[in-house]
C-alpha cells in the first residue's frame, strides 16, 4: 500500500517481514516457556493485547472480550500468573505452539501481519487444541522491535472455552 511520507513516519524504519516473523517466533517461544517477565518489555507503552469474544469486529472497547489489556493490566496479569497462588496457573497447562501462515497487511509506520496460531495444551490426562487467527502490529523502537497490538481471535471465540491459565 501507499503510505504518506509524513516526516515522522518517513524517518521510522519499518520492520521487514523476516524480522517480524523471527520476533513473533521468539515471542511464541517465550510464552511456551512461561518467560513472562521477558515478555512484558516486548510491548510498546500503549500496546493493546486483545482476545475477543466475537469474530469480524474491530471495535473491541465497547464489546466484551476475554482479554483487553493495556500495560497496567498486562503487568497485573503476569504478576498473577507467576505468583504461585493461582491454582489454574501453578502449574498451568503445558503448551506447545506454532505461528505461521503470515500475511502482510499494512505498513503504516509499523508492520501489520495476519497469522495462524495453533496451541496444544496438556494438563490432567487431557490434550486440547486452541486455534486462532492472530493480527500483530510490530513497530521498531530504539531498543528493538515491539508489539504495538496483538489480537488473538480464537476460531471458536464465540463458543465455550475452558479455563486458560497461561497466555495466548
Amino acid at each position: 500500500m501507499t503510505i504518506m511520507m509524513d516526516p515522522d513516519i518517513a524517518s521510522i524504519d519499518v520492520p521487514t517481514l523476516a524480522e517480524a516473523t523471527a520476533f513473533i517466533w521468539a515471542e511464541a517461544d517465550m510464552l511456551d516457556r512461561l518467560d513472562y517477565k521477558q515478555w512484558l518489555p516486548l510491548w510498546t507503552e500503549n500496546g493493546r493485547y486483545i482476545i475477543p469474544t466475537e469474530r469480524g469486529i474491530d471495535d473491541y472497547d465497547d464489546r466484551l472480550n476475554i482479554v483487553n489489556d493495556n500495560a497496567e493490566m498486562r503487568a497485573a496479569r503476569v504478576k498473577r500468573l507467576l505468583s504461585g497462588f493461582s491454582m489454574s496457573s501453578a502449574p498451568p497447562a503445558r503448551t506447545v505452539r506454532t505461528v505461521s501462515r503470515f500475511v502482510q497487511l499494512a505498513d503504516d509506520g509499523g508492520l501489520t501481519l495476519r497469522a495462524a496460531q495453533i496451541v496444544a495444551e496438556y494438563k490432567y490426562e487431557r490434550m486440547r487444541i486452541l486455534a486462532a487467527d492472530v493480527v500483530y502490529r510490530i513497530v521498531r523502537e530504539d531498543d528493538g522491535l515491539k508489539i504495538d497490538r496483538k489480537v488473538v481471535t480464537l476460531v471458536n471465540c464465540d463458543d465455550y472455552q475452558h479455563g486458560i491459565g497461561y497466555l495466548l
Binding site: 497485573a76 491454582m87 489454574s88 475452558h162 479455563g163
Partner: peptide
C-alpha cells in the same frame, strides 16, 4: 476463561 477469577474457580 482468562479472567483473574474464573480460571481458578474452574480449576
Amino acid at each position: 476463561p482468562m479472567g483473574f477469577g474464573t480460571p481458578d474457580d474452574a480449576e
